[in-house]
Design a binder for these strands. Sequence first.
RNA 1: AGGAAUGUAGCUUAGUGGUAAAGCAACGGACUCCAAACCCGUUGAUGAGGGUUCGAUUCCUUCCAUUCCUGCCA
Length: 341
Amino acid sequence: MIERVFSGVQPTGNLHLGNYLGAIRKFVDLQQKFDSCLYCVVDMHAITVWQDPAELTKNIREVTASFIASGVDPKKHIIFNQSQVSGHAELAWIFNCVARMGWLNRMTQFKEKAGKHKENASVGLYAYPVLMAADILLYRATHVPVGEDQKQHLELARDIAQKFNKDFAEPIAEAGFADGFFPQPDPLIAGTATRVMSLKDGSQKMSKSAASDLSRINLSDDAETIAKKIRKARTDPDGLPSEEKGLEGRAEARNLVNIYAALSDSTVEDVLKQYGGQQFSAFKPALSELAVAKMKPIGDEMNRLMDDPGHIDEILRDGAVRAREISQPVMKAVKGIVGFI
RNA sequence: AGGAAUGUAGCUUAGUGGUAAAGCAACGGACUCCAAACCCGUUGAUGAGGGUUCGAUUCCUUCCAUUCCUGCCA
């Protein structure tokens, strides 16, 4: 069975440094290691909470642009948006009938997102993890880069794959698949998990929904804005320690060092070796120079790409065609297995 | 499906038939190695439509949304 990576990013709102360091940038490394990578703009997941249609269109293009600007090769691998490949929806329905309500009731992310108003959440939000399982298994993907918060969803995908294999063991065997039809997708925990925290509160993840825009660095921020945000980032009264241990209990300081390490492709240890003992007034300008140097080319390239939406759409269309080539035989087999004519 | 209640700023709340108030949040300044806290300042709201009235955020009415209770279905 060939190894294949599937990863999705939701086109909702602003992309920020956390999205970049936590996900998008990793795609570039993965495309060296795996022959087949699918990078999917999951627009169908996005609408589990209401999206303004015009904004959604723009956001789909923006995420696509961020992939390309970050260095993903849309020729060698596949960049596409989910809704153009109907197999996602078709397989999700079949999986809806495989997955059990009890499994979904346990999903912590639904509980968090729906909050106290569970009755008011969309059915789609509830069924979200099933669609995600379909995304992965539609391509019989073997490796899925996931963050901590998505681990539970991946486990559900494994459960669904397993139950499908078991429920339809006989027709699967008849179709010539000896060890089950769907593989068990594995999580890809990429090296140092870069968790980028809010610049205003080191205990919160950097997020597009935080009240203050100063808490995040957007991919669309210009050099001046990036510098300002880093200058205003929260710290503490001490200087930088020379060893990692000195960052204990100093979430904000650690976050800035983490960001520096991630952007410079080095380690926290190396950064502290260089900046240990220095004041934030020295470190912050260095960090902001580094951030601008790394982020600005990406932002510029995104802007350039966004100026020609037709070109982006063409890339997505081409990706969708190739994604369909992989998924159609899978879908055809699945339909046969469950007994559809 | 029946009944009840609520709707004021991003959030939590006040209030009045005559310029809509506060706390938190946000933003700016000051302070600070840079920040935080404190201090100073700024932005920002009556769900939508209709009616009564000189004047409606307030009274009436319709709609919409939300919350609670009861029932029905699964």
